[in-house]
Amino acid sequence: MMTKLHNQELERRLSLYQVFLSLYERHGNLLDEILQLENLSQSSVNGVKPLYVQGVVDDSSVYVITNLCEHQTQTLQQAQHLWTIGRDRSNGICTQEPHLSRCHAAIQYVENQGFYLVDFNSTNGSFVNGEPVYQPVKLKDGDRIRLASLTFDFFLNQKRRVLPELSTNLLTQILPPVANQQTTALNHISVSQECKCEKTEDTVQIELDYISVGRGESGKHNVIQQKKSEILERFFSSTNNG
């Protein structure tokens, strides 16, 4: 009885495998879509950031920015404009994805042409938007790349713009209230003070110079009693501590 049930289970699994194989042969992108859905679900559950590679062409400088290396965003420059990807630590982009080959593929920049994905005859293959890569494939902004079971997005940046400065009215709306108050206070009160303290046996001489307090008349020395008291307290406190 047990043998019969075991044989039935094997036949059921074999039938399911044949159905899946037939379905995959007719729909080559099915596995890619399943892998992408799995990556998205895992990212949302585990809080993992989406993986990406960004190719940057900035004047005469060419580099890539990626978080494939230990999930940390890094800027990678390479003199030959060739960034290899694989499990081996000698790769410019090293990731321990178990299904990757030791040197699986590379992203290459060709002068005046763009970035390309190159597969190094990897065991589990390379794909761009679900299509297998047999020869270098030129990459476009937003392409979906899969190396074995590792899936990431490719972004392309070919232009840098310097934006104009924001208006003062807009800046005052953006600044937090505390900063606004401090800025207003600094605009209305400019205090330049010089305090010289000399201690003799019987005499303590304090010279206070306040210049341009608030919007007072120029040339007049206005002494604020509160400020004077604070300075005296600090002076006697330091004297007692000494």
Rank of each mutant, 00 (worst) to 15 (best):
G92R: 07
L82S: 01
S60N: 12
P98T: 02
A79R: 11
E111D: 10
T75I: 07
S90P: 02
Q80T: 08
T75P: 00
S60K: 04
Q108P: 14
T73G: 03
S44K: 14
Q96K: 05
R87G: 03
Q113P: 01
L35Q: 11
Y63K: 11
L40I: 14
G55L: 02
L37R: 14
H71A: 07
G86Y: 05
H71Q: 11
S43N: 11
Q80K: 09
V53Y: 05
E70H: 11
V57N: 07
V48K: 04
H104S: 08
V45T: 15
L31F: 12
W83C: 03
S43C: 11
S44H: 12
I107H: 02
C94S: 09
G28D: 15
C94M: 05
W83I: 01
Q80R: 11
R87M: 00
N112Y: 11
Q108C: 06
D32P: 01
L35M: 11
T73Q: 12
N91S: 04
I34N: 07
Q42P: 01
V56F: 13
T95G: 01
V48N: 12
Q80H: 08
Q77N: 06
V62L: 07
V48A: 14
R89P: 04
S90H: 04
L82W: 09
L76H: 00
N91A: 02
V45M: 15
T84H: 09
Q80L: 07
Q78N: 11
C69Y: 14
T66H: 03
T95F: 00
L35W: 11
N46T: 04
S60F: 12
N29F: 09
P50Y: 03
A79W: 09
N46H: 11
L35H: 08
P50N: 08
L40W: 09
C69N: 04
T66E: 00
S43Y: 05
I34Q: 08
Q36K: 10
V56W: 10
D32Q: 14
D32Y: 14
V110G: 06
D32W: 14
Y109V: 03
Q72G: 00
I93R: 00
D88I: 01
C69A: 07
V64P: 09
Q42K: 09
E111R: 12
R102F: 05
I34R: 13
Q113N: 08
L30D: 09
A105C: 08
G47M: 11
Y52D: 06
D32G: 10
S41N: 15
S101D: 08
K49A: 06
L68Y: 05
N29D: 15
N91T: 06
L82A: 03
G47F: 00
R89H: 10
G86K: 08
G55K: 03
L68C: 04
